[in-house]
């Protein structure tokens, strides 16, 4: 473990908490893409199956359970409890155009052709594009993202950017190099760059975040 990965994981946890609190406190999931949240739940389900087969550390197991729990609760709130506030008309990204190619790529490009390893690879690839429906939704719904949603996106984007620092650190310190995770992590972070620019230039100056359509 290193400081980059620890801060990254805490930023990831903060993002999940920010989103959950936003939906729970406002009793509304307006502006939140249910499709992205379903994809995040898929990411954690397919990545954390080793929860039962491999023990890495208490921290690792606890965080996996927390991420799984929070993502399931978030999906539950969006599609069941606060279903009436779900903005389905604007959450129209065709996720099958993401899931199918990602699944195909996971079968073709992976470290080892085994069940758990292909699911892990699928989850890594899926996570790098899972935020697209959310960014697409913000760019469609009049470009206005609630400030809290932009904080959620910022925390979520920063987590993977910190993981890149973690991979650089681990490469020089431990000779650790996971090509698949690094490439997908860079793609994921690049997808946020446009948002990061808008977040810093707008939200930090107290303005509302708008993503040009």
């Amino acid at each position: 473990m290193n400081i980059f990965r620890l801060v990254g994981d805490l930023s990831h946890l903060a993002a999940l908490i920010i989103l959950l609190l936003k939906i729970w406190k406002s009793r509304s999931c307006a502006g939140v893409s249910g499709k992205s949240q379903i994809m995040f739940a898929m990411v954690y389900m397919t990545r954390y199956l080793d929860l039962f087969t491999t023990f890495v550390s208490v921290y690792n197991s606890v965080m996996k359970v927390v991420f799984l729990l929070f993502s399931f609760v978030t999906v539950y709130l969006i599609y069941f409890k606060f279903k009436a506030t779900y903005d389905g008309n604007h959450d129209t990204f065709r996720v099958e155009f993401l899931v199918v190619p990602v699944a195909g790529l996971a079968v073709l490009v992976n470290h080892e052709f085994s069940f758990l390893e292909i699911l892990w690879t699928f989850s890594i690839y899926l996570e790098s594009v899972a935020i697209l429906p959310q960014l697409f939704m913000i760019s469609k719904t009049g470009c206005e993202a609630e400030t809290i949603t932009s904080h959620y996106l910022f925390a979520l984007g920063i987590y993977r950017a910190l993981y890149i620092a973690n991979w650089i650190f681990r490469y020089y310190m431990e000779g650790f190099f996971d090509f698949i995770a690094i490439v997908a992590g860079c793609v994921q972070t690049i997808l946020y760059c446009d948002f990061f620019y808008l977040y810093v230039t707008k939200v930090w100056k107290g303005k509302r975040l708008t993503i040009p359509a």
Partner: peptide, 10 residues
Amino acid sequence: RVGIYMHDEL
């Protein structure tokens, strides 16, 4: 060990 790769990151 999960396959060849032990994934120790979240």
